[in-house]
Nucleic acid binder design. Structure first.
Length: 492
RNA sequence: CGGGGUGUGGCGCAGUUGGCUAGCGCAUCUGGUUUGGGACCAGAGGGUCCAGUGUUCGAGUCACUGUACCCCGACCA
């Protein structure tokens, strides 16, 4: 399936922003850096949640909920962790308002100052580990495998819809284990859950790998990541899974009695994906006509548009459509009939394309007479007239094919924009050009930092699967010896 | 927090060297004709031109101050 692989770069930000707003996914809220997710956008997020949730359950993970507020003292126990987040935290200092003495609205009641400030969670490691301390005493209590779906707040300087907002929705899993091996294996298992989800559900090809020490989560010994390529060639970190070692266990004094009767600190992981995945979906698959949704994540998989002149035709077509809808829904497909009678068909076609619905049926008098339906697919923008007879059987295959085609297109695009590079001058050009470059790296933070300063490129990951490349070579920048290639790119 | 830009009906914008009743497109409402790729015609409604101060006979237009938002940096999922 050879497809033309072209790169979007002109006004890509503009295109992205317009699409988010026009497709009815989200809009900027009056609150600085925050976002309103609209019903259609939220429906997609809910689909993501349900697929991920099922995968987590399969891994033995249970959902729970921990508080939004974290006492300042909890937060500061893990030194690296606090250093990583302190700059971007929202802090609650008071608990009451009062009427303005001047009679203009309300003011903060100075009497209601909190003794200890509360941090609005930027992530929940600290509150969760202070809780786990009470849950864990024996090796029999382990492992603990919890996940929570929640919002977090990170007071970012610059924000973009879905990609970086001051408040965002996510899930964060937090596990506690008896041994280092078991925890490390869990971190790896979860990054693979994310990779499977990205590939199979979101039709998003991703590279799995380790973060360099510089790019690690604050407080982690190892961070695993899935990295995706957007259509402008930039990288997007789509999910991370951290092996936290015993850092948090030690900071919060979480010990258990082993089978041998010894006191041991537990081993931890945490892992999360956020509404940023929505941004990945848009930037990986969208085109000039709007959003392109993989069927596995589309809230509406098939939309039906009736075409008619008279009331009788309208009724006859709708009858047929409701029958069809019932049959398709019985097979597990989600279907919507667009019977808004104030809008013309052409308008509806354009609107559903903008919203990325994978399959569109159009049925008019001609189809009614001939027993056919016009089937249009969003990914290829092609349409054909097919017989109604047996349509239920073919629709499943069509949706599968669309899912595969969308993945393949994104995959081909990425393959066309990943290459090995061993020349520094070439590196500087190609990285600006939106390529992922597989280069040798000497393993030092200094070299990584210098490359970042000069080109804005960062090490996206040290790949562990598809792009793993262990071979002797020389660092692209310093020329020092290197044992493997890593992925460099400019990222969101 | 540094550099740049923009604030004019719901949205997007025009508005000349300061000048008379502040315009245009989209959207909205009414009526009619339409409906197989974003309809057309006719009519209607909707504005303290971001705020404050100043210059002037006269300010959407000029100056200063404030403020909000956007873009580019630093920070980040």
């Amino acid at each position: 399936m050879a497809k033309e692989v072209t790169k979007r770069s002109e006004n890509y930000s503009q295109w992205y922003n317009d699409l988010v707003v026009k497709a009815d996914l989200a809009e900027q809220s009056p609150v600085r850096g925050c976002m309103v997710i609209k019903p259609y956008g939220y429906a997609i997020w809910e689909k993501m949640q349900s697929v991920l949730d099922a995968a987590f359950k399969k891994s033995g993970v249970k959902n729970a909920y921990f508080p939004l507020f974290i006492p300042k003292s909890f937060f500061s126990r893990e030194a690296e962790h606090v250093a990583g987040f302190a700059k971007e935290c929202a802090v609650v200092t008071h608990h009451r308002l009062m009427n303005d003495p001047d009679g203009k609205g309300v003011v903060v009641d100075p009497e209601a100052k909190l003794e200890e400030e509360l941090i609005v969670r930027p992530t929940s490691e600290t509150i969760i580990w202070s809780t786990y301390k009470n849950w864990i005493t024996s090796w029999r209590d382990l492992p603990i495998l919890c996940n929570q779906w929640c919002n977090v707040v990170r007071w970012e300087m610059r924000t973009r819809l879905f990609l970086r907002t001051a408040e965002f929705l996510w899930q964060e899993g937090h596990t506690a284990h008896a041994t280092s091996e078991e925890a490390a294996a869990k971190a790896e298992e979860m990054v693979q859950v994310y990779a499977d989800f990205a590939r199979n559900t979101m039709a998003l090809p991703v590279i799995v790998g380790h973060k360099s020490p510089n790019e690690r989560f604050a407080g982690a010994l190892d961070t695993l990541t899935i990295e995706a390529m957007m259509q402008d060639g930039k990288a997007l970190q789509a999910g991370t899974s951290h092996f936290l070692g015993q850092n948090f266990a030690k900071s919060f004094d979480v010990q258990y009695t082993s089978k041998e009767g010894k006191q041991e600190y537990v081993w931890a992981t945490s892992w999360g994906v956020s509404t940023r995945l929505m941004g990945a979906l848009i930037m990986a698959h969208g085109d000039d006509n709007g959003l392109v949704l993989p069927p596995a994540i589309a809230p509406i998989q098939v939309v039906m548009v009736p075409i008619y002149k008279t009331e009788e035709e309208h009724n006859a077509i709708l009858d047929k459509m409701y029958e069809l809808k019932k049959n398709l829904e019985a097979l597990g497909h989600s279907v919507q009939i667009d019977d808004r009678d104030t809008l013309r068909p052409g308008f509806k076609f354009a609107e559903w394309e903008l919203k990325g619905v994978p399959v569109r049926f159009a049925m008019g008098p001609r189809d009614l007479a001939g027993g056919t339906v016009e089937v249009a697919r969003r990914d290829t923008l092609t349409k054909e007239t097919v017989a109604l007879e047996g349509i239920e059987k073919t629709i499943g295959d069509l949706l599968d094919d669309i899912q595969k085609t969308i993945y393949q297109k994104a995959f081909d695009f990425r393959q066309a924009n990943v290459e090995k590079c061993d020349d520094w001058e070439e590196f500087k050009t190609k990285i600006q050009d939106g390529k992922f470059l597989l280069c040798h790296w000497d393993g030092t933070a200094e070299t990584e930092q210098k490359i970042k300063d000069e080109t804005k490129a960062t090490i996206r990951c040290i790949p562990v699967d598809s792009f793993v490349c262990e071979e002797e070579g020389k660092d692209i920048y310093s020329g020092k010896p290197s044992k493997q290639r890593v992925v460099f790119a400019i990222s969101y």
